[in-house]
Design a protein around this nucleic acid. Structure first.
Length: 114
DNA sequence: CTTCTGACGAAAT
DNA sequence: CATTTCGCCAGAA
């Protein structure tokens, strides 16, 4: 049976290349989950994150906060076409993830909130 | 069980 | 814009 963590990872898996989401945004799609929990889950390890585009999840400020692997994360994003301005920030207007499709929400019993 | 530590975020300063 | 403060909460020690 899928626990909360699996749902989060599955949700992150829905983020298409070339798009990014912030922790709070992802958390808001799963009742009871807070931004911090999402971050903590993604800090697990490559083993846990197998097949999960963890690099497409950044903080609400549109930047990659200092953490081990931040450099690699930025590299992966740029490889997908994400552009960082001189302040190491991305433009939400251009890359903001629209959220999971209604299909995904239905599969998990959630209502298309946004 | 208690304590500590954050891949967060919003508001205040 | 940079820092600080506070709320929140899952794991590790």
């Amino acid at each position: 049976m899928p626990n909360l963590r699996d749902i989060i990872l599955d949700l992150v898996r829905q983020i298409p290349a070339g798009h990014v989401a912030n922790y709070g945004q992802v958390a808001d799609f799963v009742p009871g989950v807070r931004a911090r929990q999402v971050g903590h889950i993604l800090s697990g390890g490559t083993a846990t994150l197998a097949g999960v585009p963890w690099h497409r999840v950044i903080n609400a400020g549109g930047t990659i906060s200092p953490h081990p692997g931040a450099a690699e994360q930025r590299r992966l994003l740029e490889a997908e076409g994400i552009v960082f301005n001189h302040q190491g920030r991305i433009a939400w207007a251009d890359y903001r993830w629209a959220g999971p499709g209604p299909v995904w929400l239905a599969e998990h019993g959630f209502e298309p909130g946004f």
